[in-house]
Design a protein around this nucleic acid. Structure first.
Length: 203
DNA sequence: ATCAAGATTACCT
DNA sequence: GGTAATCTTGATA
């Protein structure tokens, strides 16, 4: 697979759109993190949408704060937050400037650099098959495997450090829908989207 | 200043 | 299936 950002990465207009639409459109696309020595990449197989206005579970529901201000930037940034005293979660910011919405990445199937992901998660490069499934099947696990932390909060996804390849859209019939996981407010909204794939966090 | 909650994970029985 | 771990943030006083 060619991971070259110049010809293939998603552009601002893709991100500056409705969060539900962007969430579904991200399924099947390749999330890439590059630095001098490493190339990590994986297929996005599970996401959730968080939408400022009518969504009590969204970090932006009560307006802008120091933590969530990146979500109000124009679509195409990475919003990274820390939770439960242990885990980072990363989100793709969507919509126009001044509107707080983002897509949480919850499940990724490793495509490139799974040995480095294993090292980031477990401190060793060789892991058994069972642990391979556990590399990136959850939002906190993804950040750990990809080495994403608060230093990456606000990074521009149209740059060459972290970006998403513009592969084909997943077919509507292949997109599964459910309520979102791990929230206590606005639980009824059907804004979790995923594919039939082993790296989904929860059945 | 204090406090409760949290977009989770790993480990236990 | 249940729950401890762990600490940052935002709200309230």
């Amino acid at each position: 697979m060619n991971f070259d950002p110049e010809s293939q990465k998603l552009t601002p207009d893709f991100f500056q759109d409705n969060v539900i639409k962007v969430a579904k459109s991200l399924l099947g696309k390749i999330f890439v993190k590059r630095d001098e020595n490493t190339l990590l990449a994986g297929k996005i197989v599970e996401v959730e949408a968080y939408d400022g206005v009518d969504d009590e579970a969204c970090h932006c529901y009560r307006g802008m704060t120091e933590r969530n201000k990146v979500m109000f930037m124009p679509g195409g940034r990475l919003y990274v937050y820390f939770t439960y005293g242990a885990h980072f979660c990363c989100n793709v910011v969507t919509g126009k400037e001044g509107f707080g919405a983002a897509v949480l990445l919850r499940g990724i199937e490793p495509v490139e650099g799974s040995d480095i992901m294993a090292y980031n998660r477990y401190g060793v490069k060789d892991i058994d098959k069972k642990k391979t499934i556990n590399l990136t099947n959850g939002p906190g696990k993804i950040c750990r495997a990809f080495g994403i932390d608060r230093a990456h909060n606000g990074i521009d996804l149209t740059g060459n450090k972290i970006y998403i390849l513009n592969s084909a859209l997943a077919e509507e019939k292949d997109i599964l829908v459910s309520e979102r996981i791990g929230i206590k407010k606005s639980v009824e909204l059907p804004w979790r989207f995923y594919l039939n794939n082993n790296f989904v966090s929860k059945k």
